[in-house]
């Protein structure tokens, strides 16, 4: 588009900007016309938040602003100043993944993985609000997210499995726990 897009007005004001990104206070200076997606990717340390289309059509850039899914490519950073922003990096607790992260991996919800961060934040918001969603509720929640690989079916499977984990309070193992013993049945 570069050749055809009117040039952005250069030299916009630099303003200070604060928010809470993934539970950590964050402050920086940004151009006053910055888009939240750019701030998160270029300054906020969230390269997990993806840019897919620039037009709010694909949902890859979705983040939670005060718990509500928002398309960060259509959100001016100034608009959400002072808000609590959650990106895909903020879903897990240390090395304990969020159930939806765990099941997305296990049930094939993610193939190429580029749309995955957007889906995950939307679904985590859904599960927070409604830990046992039905098919229709799941579909409505993710209708703004495009996935080109999975055909969505395994994403729905993942959501259901995650819901089960949450309802049953199954503990998700720390990913740093010991893996397979190459010398089974013997004491070294």
């Amino acid at each position: 588009m570069s050749r055809f897009r009117l040039p952005m007005i250069p030299a916009s004001d630099e303003v200070s900007w604060t928010s809470k990104i993934n539970n950590v206070d964050f402050s920086t200076t940004i151009a006053s016309n910055s888009i939240l997606l750019d701030v998160l990717r270029n300054k906020g340390g969230s390269l997990g938040t993806k840019r897919g289309c620039d037009l709010g059509t694909c949902g890859c850039c979705t983040v939670l602003v005060d718990g509500i899914p928002k398309l960060s490519c259509l959100t001016m950073a100034k608009e959400v100043e002072g808000s609590k922003i959650t990106t895909v990096e903020g879903l897990s607790l240390g090395h304990h993944l969020h159930p939806i992260q765990e099941t997305f991996a296990e049930y094939g919800g993610s193939q190429c993985g580029f749309c995955t961060p957007g889906f995950l934040v939307v679904i985590s918001a859904l599960l927070d609000e409604n830990p046992n969603p039905n098919d229709h509720e799941i579909k409505t929640a993710i209708e703004g997210n495009l996935c080109r690989c999975t055909g969505y079916q395994q994403i729905i499977d993942s959501v259901k499995a995650a819901s089960e984990i949450m309802l049953n309070n199954v503990k998700i193992e720390d990913s740093t726990s010991p893996k397979s013993d190459p010398h089974p049945g013997f004491n070294n």
């Binding site: 969230s46 390269l47 997990g48 938040t49 990106t87 895909v88 990096e89 879903l91 897990s92 993944l97 992260q101 765990e102 997305f104 991996a105 296990e106 993610s110 190429c112 993985g113 995955t116 961060p117 995950l120 990913s175």
Partner: peptide
């Protein structure tokens, strides 16, 4: 897949 679901990919 764990890279993809954590944003580390």
């Amino acid at each position: 897949s764990k890279w993809k679901v954590t944003g580390k990919a």
